[in-house]
Amino acid sequence: MLNFLALESISSWFPPEASYQAFWMDKAFLGILMAAVFAFVLVVGLAITFVIGNRGKVAIEGQGVNQLARGLWVLGAILLYYFAFSSNFCGFMDTTQAPYGAYEIDVTASQWDWEFTYPGGHVTDTLHVAIDRPIRLNMQTEDVVHSLLIPALRVNQAIIPGKISRTWFQADMIDTFMLRSSKYSGEKYADMHTAMITHSPAVFTEWLEAAGDIFAGRTLSEVGEILYTRHGCAACHSFDGSKRVGPSFLDMYGNTFDTKEGVAVTVDDAYIKESILKPNVSVIDGFDPVMTPYEGILDDREIEALTEWFKSMSSFADQGEK
């Protein structure tokens, strides 16, 4: 029976199994398939046998029902359904909760792109993961419903607007796999695909260090702008001159302001560094001392980058440098 069903050829119905979850799901699929084939052959086989075999036979009269046969038939159906329902139930429960300490990657889906953000803040358009460690994806959509489908991992999770949809997996195969959306989302839905690239843990760490180095190939000023977005500075500081909770960065560098205590300060490299690391020491008049200190979050090089960016959009830049 098993040989007849040609397990190898049925396994070609599936993409590669790149995780133990995929392995268990395929096993369950195969089990249900064999049960379903058995039920199909039984029902259709009996029907065809009678249709062909009873040709020209005289009808047997009587309305009696074989209660035992019918009872067994119904019991068989219930067992079949229950078997199909409960197969791989542990695998299902396993997918509902990621293990403690899983590596977290934020996923943003939008028409018609994927964006993956790693813990350090690095952003890519292909998903890079290390094998042999649990990866949790926290997924959000910017517009309509999408669904993250990675066939090799048997992961297919809908992303509903207004919710964070989570899924997790643990890949165990180094390769490049298909990753795409499986929910129709408009014109270019068919193009909403990218790749998942798996690395060994060591290679992944190297990759992230290299790719996550935002200074590589960028000017200091460009890095400053990235840091501004990444650290959420925009919540309180604009760079177009408009006033938010804190002062705008436009024309700030080199300019002179009065502090609350009435002391005149010129915004130079030292003042910027102090305002980032110990922001509530000398606050410019008109603003409240409410900023979170960034000591231990931004290092000297990053502060230097921000300073360069501030310079690039200030008409007083040369005054600060004196």
Binding site: M25, A28, I32, A36, L80, A84, F85, N156, S182
Partner: peptide, 21 residues
């Protein structure tokens, strides 16, 4: 019959979520 039996797969929670859409 094939249609009804195919619901056995979609009614299984782990396989069903993979096969949806």
């Amino acid at each position: 019959g094939i249609g009804i039996l195919s619901t056995l797969f979609t009614n299984n929670m782990s396989i069903g979520s993979y096969l949806s859409s």
